[in-house]
C-alpha cells in the first residue's frame, strides 16, 4: 500500500459538531439505558497514572476493578486496568484469575520525548511483566513538523515490540490542534499497525471530546470499508458521567454499528466514570440514589 498522509480526507469541523449535537439529542431510557450502562461499565479501562502511584494504590484499584459493588446485582467487571510499566507486575498478580486485563502505558508516556531504543525497552519491559495491552504515545512534535514517516516507523517498531499484546496508539489530540490533523494521525496510526487508536494521555486539556472521537471513529469506519479490518477506539480523559458515556455509545452505535459494541473494540479510559455508572445502576435497582459513601472509591 502507498501511504500518503497528506491525502487523508478533509474534515469539516462545523459538520462534525452538528453531528455530535444530533447524537446528544437521543433519549436513552429504561431497558436501553440499563443495557448501555452495563456495557459502558464493561468497557472501562480503570486508570491510575499519577506520579505518586504506589504498589498499594495499584493493588487497591485492581481489587475495585474485580469487585465493583457489594449489593448491585449482575454487574460485569471493567475491561482492564491501566497503569505505568513498573506497576504491571503487581496489577497482574492482584488480578490473577479474573477477566480484567492489564494495560500499560509505555514509550516515555506522556510526552513521548525519548529515543526509540528507550521506547522499545519500555514497551518490552511492560510486556514481559505481563501487560496484555500497551498504550503508546506518538511523537507529536515530529507529527506537527510533517515528519509522518518518523511517526509511522516508530509505531511500527513498537507494534513489533508488543508481540502478542494489543497496541493502543495515543494521538494526544489536545496537542494536534485541528480535526484534519486528528484524522491524518488516525490514518497514520492505523496503517502503521495500531489495534486501537486512543485520544489522549489525560495529561493535556482538552482530553477526549465527542467531536475528536467522531473523527477517529470515521477513520476506523473508512478503514473497515476498504479492508474489512476492525480497529478499536478508546476515548480517554474527561468522561466522568454515565450520561456522557451513553452519548459516546450512541455515537459508536450509529457510526460503526453493533459489531463494535463490546470491550474488544471500544474502551473508556477513565478513573471516576465507573462509580457514576454504579450510582445510576443502583438507582435503577433501588429506585433511589445511593449516597456516594456506599460506593467504594477504589
Amino acid at each position: 500500500m502507498n501511504y500518503n498522509f497528506r491525502n487523508s480526507p478533509v474534515i469539516d469541523q462545523v459538520g462534525i459538531e452538528e453531528r455530535v449535537a444530533r447524537f446528544n439529542t437521543r433519549s436513552i431510557k429504561k431497558q436501553s439505558k440499563l443495557q448501555g450502562l452495563h456495557l459502558a461499565l464493561n468497557m472501562i479501562d480503570l486508570t491510575t497514572l499519577e506520579g505518586k502511584d504506589t504498589e498499594g494504590k495499584v493493588k487497591q484499584m485492581c481489587t475495585k476493578a474485580m469487585h465493583l459493588s457489594n449489593d448491585i446485582k449482575d454487574l460485569p467487571s471493567v475491561a482492564a486496568v491501566c497503569v505505568y510499566p513498573n506497576y504491571v507486575k503487581i496489577a497482574k498478580q492482584t488480578l490473577k484469575g479474573s477477566k480484567v486485563k492489564v494495560a500499560s502505558v509505555a514509550t516515555a508516556f506522556p510526552s513521548g520525548n525519548s529515543t526509540l531504543e528507550i521506547k522499545i525497552t519500555d514497551t518490552k519491559f511492560a510486556v514481559e511483566n505481563g501487560a496484555d495491552e500497551i498504550d503508546m504515545v506518538i511523537s507529536r512534535g515530529e507529527f506537527l513538523k510533517g515528519n509522518y514517516n518518523f511517526v509511522f516507523d516508530e509505531i511500527a517498531a513498537i507494534k513489533q515490540a508488543c508481540g502478542k499484546a494489543r497496541l493502543k496508539v495515543i494521538l494526544e489530540t489536545g496537542e494536534l490542534s485541528t480535526l484534519d490533523n486528528v484524522r491524518r494521525a488516525s490514518d497514520l496510526a492505523i496503517s502503521a499497525g495500531a489495534d486501537f487508536i486512543k485520544t489522549s494521555t489525560g495529561k493535556i486539556q482538552p482530553a477526549a471530546t465527542m467531536p475528536v472521537t467522531l473523527v477517529m471513529l470515521e477513520a476506523i469506519k473508512d478503514h473497515y470499508l476498504k479492508t474489512n479490518i476492525m480497529i478499536g477506539m478508546k476515548p480517554a480523559g474527561g468522561i466522568s458521567t454515565a450520561k456522557s458515556a451513553l452519548q459516546y455509545l450512541v455515537m459508536l452505535y450509529e457510526t460503526l454499528g453493533p459489531k463494535w459494541m463490546s470491550n474488544e473494540w471500544f474502551r473508556f479510559g477513565a478513573s471516576s466514570l465507573a462509580n457514576d455508572i454504579l450510582l445510576q445502576l443502583g438507582k435503577e435497582q433501588k429506585g433511589v440514589y445511593y449516597s456516594k459513601d456506599y460506593i467504594s472509591i477504589d
Binding site: Q35, P258, S262
Partner: peptide, 10 residues
C-alpha cells in the same frame, strides 16, 4: 466477539 449487541432505543 460475542453475539451482536443490538440496541433498540426504548
Amino acid at each position: 466477539n460475542e453475539k451482536e449487541f443490538n440496541w433498540d432505543y426504548a
